[in-house]
Amino acid sequence: MSFLASVTRSTLPPRVRVPPELLVRPELPELVRQALTEWGLIAACWVGMAWVPAATPLFVLLIAGRMHAFGVILHDAVHLSVRRKSPGIWLLECLAGYPVAATWNAMRYHHLRHHHHEGSSLDAYSRPKPGPWWRTVPLGLVLILIVPGWTVRGLMGLLAWAVPALRNVYGRAFLMDRSGEDLIHSPEVLACSRAELGQVLLQLGVLALAWRWPYAVGVGYVLPLMVASAACGYRLLAEHTPLRDQGRTLQGILASTADHGLGWLGRLLLAPRNVGLHIVHHLHPQVAASHLPRLRAWYLQHYPEHYPRPRRF
């Protein structure tokens, strides 16, 4: 019997009552502190590269993990109950978004839609059904290039800001809009395109530094960023299942999402800052990532027969 069948035939309710003390929401000052902590670790790795050049490959992996963590921190900010970008969110975007070619607006656009349309044809994150390896390999290669694609997204967004006719291409190709609606006059798409200016300016600054110090920028920033991009692509495949149209119920979420990366390799690179606890994140999207372990432990205690085991992808 498949897992979905066993869950469907169970007595699980559509939702469950979780103790309020476990449903702790992220706070912006704490997210800024987390981003500064990651920058401190990256700076320490840069110093390590200078002092111990032979350990450079190890430091590249460590930096890649911290860059991946930037995306997780920005992801927590996306779930804040706000509609407009405050100065605090802009500061966090500068610390944790621009360095990995992400903006709060763009991530908020496609990620909140992912939660709302989880597992449906409107969900841009849905995994394709399993198939021959020659179909899987191209998908894997595309996902490895996520961050370079985000860099192109910034340039396209600026063009769409100036040329309204390009907003449909920008929204569908780079913001992963699957609605089929005309996006030319969408205020949200326009806000996303305007927000690209900051990350494009940072990338131009990186290019200027690379012109002066090509090796240092290449090994200390570009190479770790590409490794982080590959780790992010792996994570997107690992945390979702091919099952579609299961509904936003407890049964549906348990069937269409998966936990992963709970070991040391996950903490280091593949799923930093608890982002691998993906099932409870979908059950309670507004709970801070730092509080997901306690929440997952509660579900394991109360629904041990239904909560899936971590996925090894």
Rank of each mutant, 00 (worst) to 15 (best):
G65T: 06
R66W: 05
M67G: 04
H68K: 14
H68Q: 14
A69E: 08
F70H: 08
G71W: 05
G71P: 04
I73E: 02
L74F: 07
L74W: 06
L74C: 05
H75S: 07
D76K: 03
A77K: 02
H79Q: 08
L80S: 01
S81P: 12
S81Q: 09
V82P: 02
R83P: 00
R83H: 12
K85C: 11
K85A: 10
S86I: 03
P87D: 08
G88D: 03
G88W: 06
W90K: 10
W90P: 04
L91M: 10
L92W: 02
L92F: 02
E93A: 06
A96N: 03
A96S: 09
G97C: 06
G97K: 07
Y98M: 12
P99C: 10
A101S: 15
T103A: 13
T103M: 12
W104E: 10
W104A: 08
N105D: 15
M107R: 10
M107E: 14
Y109A: 04
Y109S: 11
Y109W: 11
H111S: 07
H111G: 00
L112W: 00
R113K: 01
H115S: 02
H116W: 05
H117V: 06
E118Y: 02
G119Q: 04
S121P: 00
A124K: 06
A124L: 04
Y125N: 15
Y125W: 13
Y125L: 11
S126A: 15
S126G: 14
S126T: 09
R127Y: 09
R127S: 13
P128K: 11
P130E: 13
G131V: 06
G131P: 08
G131L: 09
P132I: 12
W133S: 13
W133V: 15
W133D: 13
W134H: 15
R135M: 14
T136G: 12
V137K: 02
V137P: 01
L139F: 01
G140W: 05
G140I: 00
L143D: 07
I144S: 06
I146S: 10
V147N: 11
G149E: 09
W150I: 12
W150Q: 13
W150H: 14
W150C: 13
W150P: 01
T151Y: 11
V152D: 02
R153P: 00
G154Q: 06
L155H: 12
L155Y: 13
M156Q: 07
M156L: 12
G157S: 04
L158W: 07
A160E: 14
A160F: 09
A160I: 11
W161M: 15
A162N: 11
A162F: 15
A162I: 09
V163A: 14
P164C: 15
A165K: 14
A165W: 15
L166K: 10
R167M: 11
N168A: 10
N168Y: 11
Y170N: 02
R172H: 10
R172W: 07
A173N: 00
F174V: 02
M176P: 00
R178E: 11
S179V: 09
G180Y: 10
E181G: 09
L183S: 08
I184M: 13
H185L: 14
H185D: 15
P187G: 10
P187K: 07
E188C: 04
C192W: 00
C192Q: 00
C192S: 03
C192P: 00
C192A: 03
